[in-house]
Amino acid sequence: MKNVYLIADNIYSPLGDTTAQNFEQLVNNVSGVQQHDNEAMSDEPFFASLFEKDEFVDADYTKFEQLLIASITGALKDSGVNPSDKKTVLIISTTKGNISLLETEQPSPELDERIALHTSAKLITQHFGFVNEPIVISHACISGLAAMITGMRLIQSGQYDHAVVAGADVISKFILSGFQSFQAVSPGLCRPFDAGRDGINLGEGAATVILSAEEKPTGEAIELVSGAISNDANHISGPSRTGEELYFAIDKAMKGAGLQAGDIDFISAHGTATIYNDDMESKAITLAGLREAPVNSLKGFYGHTLGASGLIEAIISAQSLKQNLVIPTKGFKQQGDTNPVNVCSQLISKPLNICLKIASGFGGCNAAIILTKS
């Protein structure tokens, strides 16, 4: 099969407009999560990573679509990839899309069509001049990794040479209230894997990675070696209590890459800072024999960016490999799981070659990918 390389990327978030800006902020321990007093979104103050209100003023596109356009533009710049090439495909990852329009528009067939994810995908396709039908991946919180795995497989099959994989989500009252109804939102800053963790912070953001069968001449690309998806079918919102199903995805991804536990230099976890998710991930990591590998979660910097989270965290992981730096888990202080893992609590500088990125989501879905220096 063809090798698949990450040849260009962009993160567009409250921390910065480029991947480089975002990574620098993380290295400097700067978080986008802040307290917000916005009665239009919540009756109570809440912590989240949000864009400024006046950043998105284009009447032709929604905020969600403007985020995608900004990130895709940043990734395509100097990439050498032509959207009008028949061997290039656009894959969009999101969980909510334009669902916030339900709060501002009257119900109608037109609204139904405007909210539909395929409508946004068509608009983005036309904006950039992609000639192929876009693919939309909306698979809860593993959407970003599932989109990368889809792009990888399409390239490996020979159907395409390039896949532009972009993900975004915005936070609205509709979305925030849903998580509040689960009592899953932390009243303060989230603390992934910590003994005192009490819920998530949400976040807005977009990210794009361009996958290609052609490695950049500079040799700076990271390779997406393998990926796997599983589903535990445990509960509509509660993760598996054993971690076996996420372990199944991890094991399959590692076997697909021909790796053993000792080969993994660090793990980028989902790390939502909810009690059950972090405990489940710890169990899965333990089952995989990876308790000694450094583990980090970026939710303390970005909040949970939903359909963009897997992409943002995979891109940061790729940068970590390039720069030999493991970003710490902001908010973590004390081990809080029955199967404690090696949570990274400070910046680690050491030679890095291989990263395992994992994610889990509502409905019991799990995903794992392997990134390596090419």
Rank of each mutant, 00 (worst) to 15 (best):
K87W: 00
R197E: 06
I315D: 03
I369M: 09
L211Q: 10
D337L: 09
N38P: 01
G203L: 06
C190T: 15
Q21G: 11
G300M: 04
F51E: 04
V170C: 05
G310Q: 11
A253F: 02
A166T: 15
A273V: 10
Y61E: 01
V30K: 14
N38K: 12
A195K: 15
L325A: 13
D54T: 13
N10K: 02
V225Q: 04
N277A: 11
S177K: 13
I142W: 03
T19N: 04
D85M: 08
C190I: 11
P83V: 11
H162F: 13
K255H: 13
I354V: 15
S297R: 10
D60Q: 14
D278Q: 12
F193R: 11
G219C: 10
T18N: 07
L111Q: 01
S13H: 07
V136R: 06
G361Y: 08
I229Y: 02
N201Q: 11
Y160L: 10
A359N: 15
A168T: 10
C365R: 02
P134M: 05
L15C: 03
N29Q: 14
C365H: 14
I69E: 02
A184H: 01
Q126G: 04
G205K: 09
L117Q: 11
Y276F: 07
F248A: 11
V209E: 04
G129R: 07
A308S: 15
Q335A: 15
G196S: 13
G219R: 12
A121V: 12
S143T: 14
A233P: 04
I312A: 03
D17T: 13
F128T: 08
V4M: 03
D279T: 15
